[in-house]
Amino acid sequence: MATANMATETTTPGHLGDPSYLSHLSSSLNQLRQQACLCDVTVIVDNQRFPAHKAILSCASEYFQSMFTSGFQESTSNEVTVPGTGGSFSQLLEFAYTGYFTLSPTTVAGVLNMACYMHFSQAVEVCANYLSEVKDSITIDDCFEIWSVASNHGSLAELSESFRRHLVRSFNKCAESQSFLEHSSVDFLLECLGDEEIETDTTTEKQILQAVIAWLQFN
């Protein structure tokens, strides 16, 4: 009887699989996209056209999931137009199909902005991790954009604080930027003026005064 039970146990089918299958599936789907094969939607961004599959976009982005399941016109249309830049969307599309994309200090701000807007949550996380490593290589204008985007995205509170502090410490460079005039609030300006990390030699004090006057005139 024990022998019979042992035989039954060893011949019971197991939960088996191929660890490389998901990678193969991702690669195959991306090839279909690149060949515009079996695509059921074309996303138009900044006059550029991107063939894609609604199911893939919906899995990667809450924005597209809502768009394609809402019952409105977009859910049945084979073309949709969305705001943004073609370069940034191209990277997000690559991420949606493969889980990877190419970022650089000059492009990450635009990709993060679009990823937040379209709720590519995992892409946002990758951007945030990358930014923590290359913060010192980001232009001041892009730093202001990243700070603004992160401040309005709940999951990026840590990134927002990091870039706010970075901008305060880089006050001299900030003051020379158009973004300083356009995006600085009164609270941010007061924080800069009261920060002990800002140097207080004669030249810097003159720069601070000039920055305050320029900001007041602009606003």
Rank of each mutant, 00 (worst) to 15 (best):
T69C: 06
D136F: 12
G87E: 07
Q65R: 12
Q73S: 09
N152L: 14
T106A: 00
H15T: 07
C192V: 12
F64D: 01
A150E: 01
Q178I: 08
P51Y: 04
F171T: 03
G14D: 11
A175S: 12
S155A: 15
N47W: 06
F50K: 04
K206C: 13
I213G: 00
H15K: 09
V41H: 07
E9M: 13
E205D: 09
S160E: 10
S155L: 15
Q91V: 02
A115H: 04
P105L: 09
S148C: 15
P19Y: 05
S184A: 07
D195H: 15
D18T: 04
D142L: 03
E79A: 10
F72V: 03
K206F: 06
T85K: 14
M6D: 15
V186A: 13
I146G: 03
F120C: 04
K54W: 15
N30S: 09
M114H: 00
N172W: 09
S88P: 00
Y97R: 02
G17H: 05
F163M: 05
L209P: 05
F89R: 00
C37K: 15
E145P: 00
A60Q: 05
H153I: 12
I213K: 06
K173Q: 11
S27F: 14
E125F: 13
G14W: 12
A36M: 10
F180K: 10
E145L: 07
T3V: 01
Y130S: 03
F144D: 00
L25H: 07
G194L: 13
C192R: 02
A52D: 01
T203Y: 06
Q34D: 05
F72K: 11
F188I: 02
R164N: 14
Q91K: 08
T81N: 08
Q73R: 10
M67W: 09
W147H: 09
S77N: 08
Q48V: 06
I138F: 04
W215K: 06
M6N: 13
E197A: 14
S155Q: 13
Y97I: 06
A115D: 05
W147N: 08
F64S: 01
K206Y: 10
N172E: 12
E196N: 11
T204N: 07
E158T: 11
L92F: 01
C39G: 04
L93R: 02
C174M: 09
Q91E: 15
A60S: 14
T139S: 12
R49E: 10
M118E: 02
C39A: 04
A214F: 05
C37I: 12
L16Y: 11
R164G: 12
C174E: 06
E197F: 11
T76P: 01
S88F: 02
E145R: 11
I208T: 11
I213S: 03
Q65M: 14
S23G: 15
Q210P: 04
T76Y: 15
E125G: 11
A2P: 07
I198F: 11
H166D: 01
D201E: 03
L181T: 02
G110P: 05
M1L: 15
I140W: 01
V134D: 03
E133K: 12
L209C: 08
A128Q: 10
A109K: 03
L159H: 13
L131H: 02
E125D: 15
